[in-house]
């Protein structure tokens, strides 16, 4: 079966590195990581992912802005997005239910098995 392509964007390299390790360890995914929010759009265009994981708060930009940029890109607009965040209050992340702007979000620290579950849900 063809591996699904996941782009993980988070300013913390240790997060992207361990997630890549875990997800690729499952044998189902090919992961590209990006630690600069401002490079995320370019990286997505190059990598052409099946799904994008976005950290909500980054030094140079934020997940919500990036998500709207992806939506504005004809090539990327239909790619599912999962938010990851270290913020906790729903008000802080502007969440409604379990979604932010229609995208699911996962609060760190999250069990990577749950991450996989969420990815699979979004890919279906």
């Amino acid at each position: 079966m063809e591996k699904r392509r996941i782009l993980v964007v988070d300013d913390e390299a240790i997060i992207t590195r361990t997630l890549k390790l875990y997800l690729e360890g499952t044998g189902s995914y090919e992961v590209r990581t990006e630690n600069e929010g401002s490079h995320a759009l370019q990286a997505a265009r190059e990598f052409n992912p099946d799904l994008i994981m976005l950290d909500l708060v980054m030094p140079d930009t934020d997940g919500a802005t990036l998500a709207s940029e992806f939506r504005g890109d004809s090539k990327l607009q239909n790619i599912p997005i999962i938010f990851l965040t270290a913020l906790v209050s729903k008000q802080e992340v502007g969440a409604q239910g379990k979604e932010i702007g229609g995208h699911p979000f996962l609060a760190k620290p999250v069990d990577p098995e749950k991450v996989v579950e969420c990815i699979e849900e979004q890919l279906q």
Binding site: I15, K108, P109, V110, D111
Partner: peptide, 11 residues
């Protein structure tokens, strides 16, 4: 603290 915890959990 939450980012390091995430790394430990994933690790």
């Amino acid at each position: 603290v939450k980012n390091p915890l995430m790394v430990i959990l994933t690790g």
